[in-house]
Design a protein around this nucleic acid. Structure first.
Lengths: 338, 338
DNA sequence: AACAAAATCCGAAACGTTTTGGAAAAAATA
DNA sequence: TATTTTTTCCAAAACGTTTCGGATTTTGTT
């Protein structure tokens, strides 16, 4: 509860001097500086960040806006791991994180910029936001620096970090081709998702590069759902028994495909190779463990924070960061039976 | 950027009146009140929470202190789900959450109370803190209200919420006994963990109630680690082939035991029943899916927030909340072969 | 010793709000 | 009409800090 005034009184100097002493300004005598610091620790002083922020109009706080921070996000660890990365990078840069969680009801009550200005955040990181979220429009209009996670949107004050989904899909397909597969199908998410479009792009490109003609009917949509994927994959495998490999736009769907294979009596990986995407926890515990494309979620978060703080300090013109991802080969892929 | 002053100027009244109008005080004319509010929305005004907190010395902020918020926590969803609950309850009560993540290095630099006072948090929720954490001592001394998650510590300003580990273990054992098991072993965590002590207590008690004598050598420690559990369980099962059921203090260890069973050639659940604890995501995807004791992590978080806000508003003398947990019966338990 | 330069300090304003203790105006009562 | 009550407003202080501009003291130079 000791304030700068108390210290000033105890030291017999002005508050100005105390402030400047504690902040290591050069225009205060080393002796008195030491004395003041002594007294400060004696009085167990700690500065009031509110007061400081108020006068400096810098809160050193960044808002972490997570849409629908809730249990449903628990299926994979995406949100959590990204948060860890954000948190680490932010605290490295001495920024504090304040958690905004929104949902449709709250969004009606309070606009994005209101939210930000009230708490005087210097910048925002948005996560889990859908492309049609009303807040997204405000972000571009607003003059508060913002970094989006996995939403491709650029502007003067807004950047994003994402992974290279085209490249990731390409790696997956190349892996299958290298194993000797030629009849490679894809269970995609749905066309509204940017990642689906990108991953399909990679699928297409890898086939083309290998000189394998793409079969339209080899590509089906599983809506990112496990049961839906099982259904469509079953159909796919019965109608096109020549298929020896399936690339899935998510691990969850890959698990569904795994079950589909079981249903149509195909052994994985002997009769059918499966590649997933995401590397969720379950992937390594599946039977057989899933070959998959992993994105470093922690790093996504970390880089988001870094990008934002760089923007805040105006030390970069960069507005987007695309991270690599990595193919993790496990037991669900093998050469096709010749 | 509009302040209360701007509104005052535009409305031709004093800042006092504006403040009182916006806060719906009764001593301002309804007409002028309406006019002021109009102008406020026109100027796109939003109050500066910093300034308000400063003068009211109420920040309406609670600190969420998560020890080692990092990827390793990703194995189960505990931390994340608890956070979701905390967040929901806090925002229900109009408290904002500010994220403190600590690690040993940071703790040396800044004491617990410094951390709190700097940011002027009204209260703190601590999660993932170990019983020997240096911050824990400060918590009791400090006068800042604090709620611990899963750490049994009570005081004037400190409470905790946890689940009934004794009861949970009891349920698990009773379930096994009801199935007809008598030779029931336990793979515990380690004795430094409070939950281990409690769960052992439940194990002991349930056996006693059923009149089954406890065998000392049936209880081994797996340190909460999957490989360690596998090792000790393998030894256990070979030395005591009469064992028909194993209760594990965590799902992760149960997975290890599952592998141990495979190694010694016992089929689960025909030859060996296994019960885990936690209900992590993997539990339902294991082969066979694990019977386990689930704790409602979300609710733990939610109740933590509730307890803290109640303490802050001094509307309760309660300092601890013990939540129920639930036995989830899946495929890893069955009657023993007679 | 006289002056300039450097070192050290401080008063006061500012940040945006709330709140206290009235004052002025309007309405009610005598 | 004179007095009291109610309504409506406001000036100023306060919260804890930083910073601007200048004042005072010390040191250095000649």
């Amino acid at each position: 509860m000791a304030t700068i005034k108390d210290i000033a009184k105890a030291a017999g100097v002005s508050v100005t001097t105390v402030s400047r002493a504690l902040n290591d300004y050069s225009d205060v005598n080393e002796k008195t500086k030491a004395r003041i610091k002594d007294i400060a620790t004696q009085l167990n002083y700690s500065p009031n960040a509110l007061a400081r922020s108020l006068v400096m109009s810098k809160s050193h706080t960044i808002g972490l806006l997570v849409s629908e921070l809730n249990r449903s996000g628990a299926k994979d660890m995406f949100t959590y791991e990204v948060m860890c990365g954000i948190n680490d990078a932010a605290s490295d840069q001495n920024y504090d994180l304040i958690l905004f969680s929104t949902n449709p009801i709250k969004q009606e009550q309070k606009s994005y910029s209101q939210l930000c200005r009230e708490r005087q955040v210097e910048g925002v990181i948005m996560q889990g936001i859908k492309t049609d979220d009303p807040y997204l429009e405000e972000v571009i209009e607003s003059n508060i620096p913002c970094v989006l996670v996995d939403v491709e949107l650029e502007g003067d004050n807004v950047g994003y970090v994402s992974t290279d989904n085209v490249f990731g899909a390409q790696m997956a397909i190349k892996h299958l081709i290298n194993l000797g597969h030629e009849n490679i199908a894809m269970v995609n998410g749905h066309n509204q998702a940017r990642v689906s479009q990108r991953r399909f792009e990679g699928y297409e490109r890898a086939l083309k590069e290998a000189g394998i003609p793409m079969q339209e009917h080899y590509v089906v949509e599983g809506d990112f759902l496990e049961p839906k994927a099982e259904t469509v994959a079953t159909k796919l495998l019965t109608e096109h028994p020549e298929i020896t490999a399936i690339f899935c736009a998510s691990d969850l769907m890959a698990l569904g495909v795994l079950r589909a294979a079981e249903r149509v009596g195909k052994k994985v990986p002997e009769d059918l190779s499966i590649v997933g995407y995401d590397d969720i926890m379950l992937a390594q515990y599946a039977h057989p463990p899933l070959t998959t494309v992993a994105q470093d979620k922690y790093q996504i978060g970390y880089e988001s924070s870094r990008l934002l703080t760089a923007m805040l300090q105006q030390e970069t013109k960069k507005r987007k960061v695309i991270l690599d991802n990595q193919l993790i080969v496990r037991g669900s892929t093998a050469p096709p039976k010749s």
